[in-house]
Design a protein around this nucleic acid. Structure first.
Length: 849
RNA sequence: GCGGACGUGGCGAAAUCGGUAGACGCAGCAGACUUAAAAUCUGCCGGCCUAGUGUCAUGCGGGUUCAAGUCCCGCCGUCCGCACCA
């Protein structure tokens, strides 16, 4: 093959992508003598086009997958599509297309884009969650969960959009209005399907401790989300002794500081009382209208309604506390009721001040023991109990224990754990999702669809012309015979939350039999995922749901592992500066795309009119700010390797990566520089060795490998750059030619097309395999990893004064003597004997004069 | 409010265990090659001064240590998560 002076990236990309496909290079080998490596990046939603975030995510996973192949692993590196969800239905409503057609078209074009990146993916395992062979197996698993008692139906309040006639997730409610319709969202009580994730709260919390290769940040976020609180649950009796209601507190020690009892506006007692009290009903309605956004809560006033009822204090039946309905008590945490202790809880104090309720101090830190607590700030610090009868003098912890013991002994309460985590509501009143496989029969009640009748397939002929759930108003789909009695019955028309689809796809990638969700034997070989890579935005929901699902399957005996992802990496976003111009008073600024701009070193102008634009902050690429760079255009111009290289360069992978035109050009120049260097693989000069270069080469082999293993791609890139600099500067020698050849292997995980092209131009005698995709990572010679000479710093009083080069491994006395003999040191000491000399072998000498 | 992370040149960063701060890249400057441009190559590239193997410098102020970007305490700033969670 004649060698082109410049690397033709586009032709090479296409050539090698075809060659890998023809050779089926990235299929798993299922060879038992190789260690397995399951490398997975979070699968994409098929929105239509890939964006730079995808390029970065998949470039990272790909480097790891290719590196693992080179180091002798059997690698599973699959790709699929998180294909159900609202955007497809919105497209159907807006453009009149079918969600399925829209989604499958998007998958086809995004698959083409991803293939252009040259990813080492086993495409034979591709799956899309919107296909019946996937969601049918999901329905089967859902029935298994139901049989195991992990699925329930509950009435619960949901955000209801009265215009679109659908339930909205909390994130879809903006300032109390539906994000699409703009209609005021109502709280509506609906019967919904739930997965009992709370059954696993303790396990999911405990399990975080075993996830040593997860970022601490993610573990902490999950820990807070699960939110374990320990305390006392007890029942108030109504004054007079009638049964009252239960409350939960984490501060049973402050019970003698109580001055009222409070229940949530959604509490059954409040609802019952409201039937006879229009004023209370109006108050409750007002509370439900209250917004839940951060700013609204910040400024929201504590509001209450005095029911006129009273309860007995559990430690003193003659002490009666008024019962209020208050807006800051949530029905879905604890028992939906509290006792108010104003002196030691800020919210209760605000409330007590507003409604002039007593404020008793029961915790004192020092002399402040007066019963009447003053000031606007509740005391929540440490201290001893005061004004609290049998608790006086105890620490907070002692008093908590004492109250719980007494409550349990006297039978009016018990120590309890309460979780912030709620059961997972999975019902969606939507078409484009997995149908929930149940049938409602008037005679038999709720009947699971028999597994033999799965999958319950979505009808193709749904109508999207009006809002609401197309499944519910479909003329025939929901009408079926009851599997139990054969009578007329209707299908469940809710579909599953798409987070269910992504809770087990990593199992299906490993094993996808047609007659069951997966084969446990195959799962045993491949799971857990060795390295999972994705965005931090999934830190809680997706990653918690997938952990729950995995534990549920283990609980049911279907798999052996408890945790799906052994190691997790959350990569940063791809960002870009923004370009805008003020349009005038009260108008939002006008944004421009990067291709409309001419950018110089310190300013930017609009190409169309040559006038300057404002350069804004470097932020996440988003359509609204128009700071998006299209991967296709970059691939057309620079090829896959330059794009991949840039994605891996400079910024640590967990941090945001600022995209810049100059940056991608720098990557492109380096691709060409390597190409020229790879033309020197036969140039041995006089055939001699270059000991210094050999050291640098072998240190790079080991260093780059360690960096890739640790996902420090920016550091691996820097080491390759440094080696390339050294090789370029070195005189031709056998070592230099070897270094050029080895460099091809070192860049192969990151720039696979360039590497293949260079590999192909080597003579057969210099290649171990036909394609570099099958080649092994070079071996670093341990002898060459250590230098035989070291540069030792000489400090005086901690300041660098001199350096010297000595043989490695000299003992302390020799190093000290050498340092003290240096002319500069002799001069600086001026004859005085040093007070102290510290020697760190092979590193430095610090002389204290 | 609670919890967490981060703060190093013009920019992205490195410094893995407390041991020579700024590797590597981007931008910039000077030069070579060229009719010219591109490409390529060489050198410089934190501040200050008396120009030295001088001095100051890792957000600010303290501390520990022979030695601190790294450890401790207190501030300031930025970003992220959660949030009337009893």
């Amino acid at each position: 093959m004649t060698r082109e002076p410049r690397f033709g990236a586009l032709a090479a990309d296409a050539r090698w992508q075809k060659a890998w496909e023809a050779a089926n290079s990235f299929a798993t080998t299922d060879s038992v003598d190789k260690p397995k490596a399951y490398i997975l990046e979070m699968f994409p939603y098929p929105s239509g086009r890939i964006h730079m975030g995808h390029v970065r995510n998949y470039a990272m996973g790909d480097v790891l997958a290719r590196f693992k192949r080179m180091t002798g692993h059997d690698v599973l590196h699959p790709m699929g599509w998180d294909a159900f969800g609202m955007p497809a239905e919105n497209a159907a409503m807006e453009k009149g297309v079918h969600p399925g057609g829209w989604t499958r078209d998007n998958i086809a074009s995004m698959r083409g884009q991803l293939k252009r990146l040259g990813l080492a993916i086993d495409w034979s395992r591709e799956l899309a969650t919107c296909e019946p062979d996937y969601y049918g197996q999901e329905q089967s698993l859902f029935l298994d969960l139901f049989a195991a008692g992990l699925v329930t139906r509950k009435h619960s309040y949901v955000n209801w959009d009265p215009v679109d006639m659908t339930v909205l997730a909390n994130e879809q409610v903006i300032d109390g209005r539906g994000w699409r319709s703009g209609a005021l969202v109502e709280k509506k009580k609906l019967s919904q399907w739930f997965l009992k994730i709370t059954d696993f709260a303790e396990e999911l919390l405990e399990g975080l401790g075993s996830l040593e290769s997860w970022p601490d940040k993610v573990r902490l976020m999950q820990e807070n989300w699960i939110g374990k609180s320990q305390g006392l649950e007890f029942s108030f009796k109504m004054a007079g002794g009638a049964p009252g209601f239960a409350v939960f507190t984490t501060r049973p020690d402050t019970l003698y500081g109580a001055s009222f009892a409070a229940i949530s506006p959604d509490h059954p007692l409040a609802e019952r009382l409201a039937k006879d009290s229009p004023e209370l009903a109006a108050f409750i309605a007002e509370c439900r209208r209250q917004g839940t956004s951060a700013e609204q809560l910040e400024t929201a006033e504590k509001l209450g309604f005095d029911t006129g009822l009273a309860v007995e204090h559990p430690l003193d039946p003659n002490w009666h506390l008024p019962v209020w309905v208050v807006n800051y008590v949530l029905m879905d945490y604890g028992t939906g009721a509290i006792f108010g202790c104003p002196a030691h809880d800020q919210r209760d104090l605000d409330f007590a001040h507003k409604y002039e309720l007593p404020v008793h101090r029961v915790i004192a830190d020092g002399d402040e023991t007066a019963q009447h607590f003053t000031g606007d700030e509740a005391y929540v610090g440490p201290g001893k109990l005061v004004n609290s009868h049998f608790l006086d003098g105890m620490t907070i912890d002692e008093a908590k224990a004492a109250v719980i013991t007494r409550a349990e002994h006297e039978g009016w309460g018990k120590g309890t754990t309460v979780w912030r985590l709620r059961d997972w509501g999975v019902s969606r009143q939507r078409y484009w999702g997995t149908p929930i496989p149940f049938i409602h029969c008037d005679a038999c009640g709720l009947v699971p669809v028999p597994k033999g009748q799965l999958p319950v397939v979505l009808p193709d002929d749904a109508d999207f012309s009006v809002p609401g759930n197309p499944l519910d108003r479909h003329p025939t789909w929901k009408h079926v015979a009851c599997p139990s009695c054969g009578g007329d019955a209707v299908r469940e028309t809710d579909t599953l939350d798409t987070f269910v689809d992504s809770s087990w796809y990593f199992l299906r990638f490993a094993s996808a039999p047609s007659d069951k969700p997966f084969d446990p034997e195959v799962i045993r070989r491949w799971l857990p995922v060795d390295q999972y890579i994705g965005g931090i935005e999934h830190a809680i929901l997706h990653l918690l749901y997938a952990r729950f699902w995995t534990r549920a399957l283990k609980h049911m005996g279907m798999i052996d592992i408890a945790e799906p992802f052994a190691s997790l990496f959350t990569q940063g976003m791809v960002t870009h500066e923004t370009y805008s111009r003020v349009q005038g008073e009260g108008l939002p600024p006008l944004f421009f795309t990067p291709d409309e701009i001419e950018r110089s070193a310190d300013s930017a102008t609009l190409a169309a009119d040559g006038a300057p634009v404002d350069i804004g902050r470097v932020i996440k690429m988003s359509k609204s700010k128009k700071n998006v760079v299209d991967p296709d255009a970059i691939l057309d111009q620079y090829g896959a390797d330059a794009a991949r290289w840039f994605m891996l360069s400079d910024s640590p992978p967990e941090r945001d990566l600022p995209w810049s035109e100059a940056g991608i050009e720098g990557a492109w120049r380096f691709v060409q520089r390597l190409w020229r260097l790879f033309g020197d693989t036969e140039n041995v000069g006089d055939g001699g060795e270059d000991k210094g270069l050999a050291r640098k080469l072998h240190q790079a082999i080991a260093g780059v490998a360690a960096d890739i293993e640790a996902l420090g791609f920016n550091k691996a890139v820097a080491k390759i750059h440094a080696l390339a600099n050294d090789v370029e500067k070195a005189k031709p020698s056998a070592t230099r030619a070897e270094a050029c050849r080895t460099l091809i292997l070192l860049v192969a995980p990151m720039m696979p097309h360039l590497a293949e092209e260079a590999w192909a131009s080597l003579p057969d005698s210099q290649r171990t395999t036909a394609m570099i995709a099958d080649a092994a990572w070079p071996t670093a010679d341990p002898v060459l990893l250590v230098d035989d000479e070291v540069t030792i710093a000489i400090q005086m009083a901690g300041k660098l004064r001199d350096t010297m080069t000595l043989a490695k491994g000299l003992d302390k006395d020799a190093v000290e003597a050498a340092a003290l003999a240096r002319p500069r040191i002799v001069e600086l000491l001026a004859g005085a004997a040093p007070k102290k000399v510290i020697v760190v072998p092979d590193r430095l000498v610090n002389i204290v004069p």
